[in-house]
């Protein structure tokens, strides 16, 4: 299968200028390739840099050195060097991200929050809402919540809204930060079904899953994150 993510020599350190220039090294020479149809689970203890790696892959953390290449419309874009508008174009069509927590926009209904990635691709409002409704129904989010803004929802409800938003546009590369952390077993299972379905349809996935049952079910491979990176066979 085609490689969609190619990370070479990624190094990330945070320099805290207002704390005596303290330098916190997090990632050192990370190499990672992910092909279409693969789901790579990042493994390692808290503080090892799993979330930092995921954010470097999305481009909201700036690499200190190395290359973070994402396949976009038949070409490679290195997020460590790309201009902001190139990164936005990659995110629009090729790169999806499900963060741990939903960043709520005041007043926007759940249905529109989920439909937004399709609207951004130019899909007409009614069609986008229909697809959003189908996805929310599959995630068993009660229908009376669809027309409310998700600000007051429970953690598990917000997380399902966030996942629906991340999956709806079927972007070829998907980054998942603890997608089932606030869910009960039944709901976690439904989310896992959708993620696995996306992978079988050719999505390249990198995720952090603390729930080992979910991780073993979804991951085709583990990638250990530490200062001495190594691949562990699944």
């Amino acid at each position: 299968m085609e490689t969609l993510i190619d990370v070479r020599g990624l190094t990330k350190a945070f320099v805290l200028h207002n704390r005596n220039e303290a330098r916190i090294p997090v990632l050192d020479d990370v190499n990672l390739s992910v092909a279409a149809g693969e789901c790579v689970a990042l493994a390692g203890p808290s503080g090892a840099g799993k979330s930092t790696l995921l954010r470097c892959l999305y481009g909201n953390y700036l690499a200190s050195a190395g290359a973070v290449c994402i396949r976009h419309e038949g070409a490679w874009v290195d997020l460590a060097r790309a201009a902001p508008r190139e990164i936005l174009a990659v995110r629009l069509r090729s790169l999806g991200y499900v963060s741990q927590f939903l960043r709520v926009i005041p007043r926007v209904s759940t249905l529109d929050v989920v439909a937004e990635p399709l609207r951004e691709l130019g899909i007409e409002a009614a069609a986008a809402r229909t697809r959003a409704a189908n996805l929310l129904a599959r995630l068993h989010l009660p229908e009376y919540l669809w027309h409310l803004p998700p600000a007051t929802f429970s953690g598990g409800e917000q997380q399902r809204v966030n996942i629906a938003r991340g999956l709806i546009a079927k972007k070829p590369v998907l980054l998942l930060d603890e997608p089932t952390a606030s869910l009960d077993v039944a709901n976690a299972g439904r989310v896992a079904d959708l993620i696995d379905e996306a992978r079988r349809n050719g999505t390249a996935i990198v995720g952090i899953f603390h729930d080992t049952v979910i991780r073993d079910r979804l991951a085709t491979r583990l990638h250990a994150v530490s200062t001495q990176p190594q691949e562990i066979p699944a």
Partner: peptide, 21 residues
């Protein structure tokens, strides 16, 4: 200068770090 979420999540300049913090 940069992408909004990159500047806010991973500010590089001392002044931006102070502002975000």
């Amino acid at each position: 200068t940069g992408l909004t979420d990159q500047v806010l999540d991973d500010p590089q300049h001392p002044y931006t770090q102070l502002l975000v913090a």
